[in-house]
Design a protein around this nucleic acid. Structure first.
Length: 473
DNA sequence: TTTTGAGTTGTTCGA
DNA sequence: GTCGAACAACTCAAA
């Protein structure tokens, strides 16, 4: 009877789990283990919502494993030490885990390899196509998305038959002691994202299946933050409650069975977003220094203002720009923000407030349930214009115009900034333009019930253009 | 080696 | 109100 360890990290699922499948293929029985790493658990960059989502996901996974006769082992401590001891206890022949790309994860895995007698075998699965698989003809990594995506799409599509089924049984004939999973903190806020593999599957099915599926109007609806036009799968992909490959199969299937050309293009746009996810995983893998500074080094020279008071106002959703404030409050409440809004608030922090994009990156990592080092860093560097194929420096979002364009009736603003509920549509994205009498009439006094704009956008735009120009030539 | 075409998501201004 | 141009070179990828 041989035993292998399935070391669970960000693959909280039984279906299409390459690490689990490999462990089962090479040993008679598998011990599923999750290590509560104090470095991650008590890290400043892991906010309570993401932690709660993870713990909830562990409870759900433990239930799924128990239903198959197995037992999820949870232990606290340094992964290298915990796994070395566990390997001895159960005489494991190997440890199987899914390869991760972040600098922290790779360093951790090196430490485990050194400390543990049994081999650590890493399988793929975080990305749909691995960083090593999508490279140029000379084996150098891509740094521009479009050619990367062409190469990605040139590979054979994955199919339903590629999805590994969940194992029928995970029975163990040995007894291993573990700790209780810490209770999931009851944060009413994260009810928007119930953490489980079943929920992830249900969301993907809802989003992608049937002729009326949201994926077929995604190209339009994804820009409307008040609508449920996106899949809202990001937290589930972050923790692997659904495999990225399963999402890709759903995308390919939707593209193939699209009822119209527009629907097909729309489903394809969603597939493109999955490719973006792979792209940023690849960038972090090949260029780990992006965690510290700009992908393009010359932009480390930007003369940031880094005003603490303005930063605090941005974090709190008190900038005086309704679209920005609604978005920041959605983030604080849900631990999630609509993508359109993420771009707007990022542009506002970096360009309007001239605050270092790393400050925003850090805040997002603290607040987001889906906070992922690769995607978050890629997104911020894109917004700041410091990244791979970044937005041109003169592309500065207008916080008022973004609201008028993508939240024309102010539904999103009124939902998340209720003090503006009675402001007329005409002023909903620029309430400071109301005359005093109109403010009284709306029951919303600017500077009292809702802040005046903390910066003047037109002036801020000129300042940002100058600051970016100064780094050139 | 050189050349060529192209590059997520925007805004403003002037005709 | 609508539309096209300007914004700014620069680097990347591939032929």
């Amino acid at each position: 009877m041989t035993t292998a360890i399935w070391w669970i990290r960000r693959d909280l699922r039984l279906t299409d789990n390459q690490a689990l499948a490999a462990a089962l293929a090479h040993a008679d029985q598998v011990v599923p283990v999750f290590v509560l790493d104090p470095k991650l658990l008590h890290s400043q960059s892991v906010g309570e919502k993401r932690l709660a989502f993870l713990l909830g996901g562990l409870h759900a996974l433990a239930t799924d494993i128990a239903a198959r006769g197995g037992c999820l082992i949870v232990r606290s401590g340094e992964p290298a030490q915990v796994l070395a001891r566990l390997c001895q206890e159960c005489a494991a022949v190997a440890i199987y885990a899914e390869r991760d790309v972040s600098p922290y994860a790779t360093a951790r895995d090196v430490a485990v390899k050194e400390a543990v007698m049994a081999p650590l075998i890493l399988t793929e699965g975080v990305a749909i196509r691995t960083p090593a698989a999508i490279v140029k003809k000379d084996d150098a990594p891509y740094t521009v998305f479009t050619p990367y995506s062409r190469r990605w799409r040139a590979r054979p599509p994955m199919q339903r038959s590629d999805i590994l089924p969940a194992p029928r049984t995970l029975k163990l004939d040995i007894r291993i002691d573990g700790e209780a999973i810490p209770p999931q903190p009851s944060l009413p806020q994260i009810e928007a994202f119930p953490p489980s593999e079943a929920e992830a599957k249900a969301r993907l099915d809802h989003f992608s299946q049937g002729a009326q599926a949201p994926i077929y109007v995604y190209a339009e609806d994804r820009n409307r933050p008040e609508m449920e036009g996106t899949s809202q799968l990001s937290p589930y992909l972050r923790f692997g409650m659904i495999s990225s490959r399963t999402a890709a199969v759903a995308a390919y299937t939707a593209v193939e069975s699209a009822p119209t050309a527009a629907a097909r293009a729309s489903a394809d746009a969603w597939l493109n977003e999955l490719i973006w996810r792979d792209f940023y995983l690849s960038i972090l893998h090949h260029f780990p220094y992006v965690r510290e500074g700009s992908f393009r080094r010359q932009y480390d020279a930007i003369d940031w203002q880094n005003d603490e008071t303005l930063y605090a106002a941005w974090c709190a959703g008190q900038t005086g720009y309704p679209f920005i404030d609604a978005a920041m409050r959605q983030l604080a409440t849900l631990g999630w923000m609509h993508n359109r809004a993420r771009m707007a608030v990022a542009s506002f922090l970096v360009k309007d407030l001239l605050i270092d994009w790393r400050w925003g990156e850090r805040w997002f990592m603290q607040m987001l349930i889906d906070g992922d080092p690769a995607a978050n860093n890629g997104g911020w560097q894109w917004s700041a214009g410091t990244g791979t194929d970044a937005a041109p420096y003169f592309r500065i979002f207008n916080p008022t115009a973004q609201g008028q364009k993508f939240d024309p009736d102010g539904v999103y603003v009124r939902r998340w900034a209720p003090e503006l509920r009675t402001v007329p549509d005409k002023y909903i994205h620029e309430p400071w333009r109301m005359a005093r009498s109109e403010q009284l009439c709306a029951g919303c006094i600017i500077g009292q019930d809702y802040p005046a704009p903390i910066v003047d956008h037109a002036q801020a735009r000129e300042r940002a253009l100058a600051a970016y120009k100064a780094t050139r030539g």
